[in-house]
Amino acid sequence: MVFLTEFAVPVVASYVASMAFALLYNVHGKNVHIASLCGAFSYAVYLVVMQFTDSMVIPNFLGGVVIAIYAELAAMIFKAPITVYLVPGIVPLVPGLTIYKAMEACLRGNLAVGGAGVVNTIKIGGAIALGLILTSYFFRLFRSIAQKLGRDAVCRQ
């Protein structure tokens, strides 16, 4: 029962949320489901990592890494630009509840809670972005290594 409410329901919800964002951003065809799986998968990793740490940064960072690896691989396999998978994939990790609670606390004059919320938002956003960017640099490195070795590197931009 705990598994159901704490894991399965949020993961399914994150799948639907990613799908709705993918559709809102006008993704067509099979890419809709590939992009939604990216969101659900990274959120599942996030939830598992959450069990092992109290830190807010590490699960978000690893979530970002998983999104980027998934999206890079999907972009290579399905020959689409990586943004198509990246943007819907990020959606479940976006700290919406944290932002809302910070806003409300600030409005009610509770600056201690509100300020901490703002800092947490920047921390989470930064962790996700760093996970994405670090992974994409590694992929760029692998690609140029593959080119240097004279292999037929996958043509993409």
Binding site: V9, P10, A13, S14, V16, A17, M19, A20, F21, G96
Partner: peptide, 9 residues
């Protein structure tokens, strides 16, 4: 859909 799924989320 976004509203409903994130409310559950």
């Amino acid at each position: 859909l976004i509203g409903g799924s994130f409310a559950v989320f």
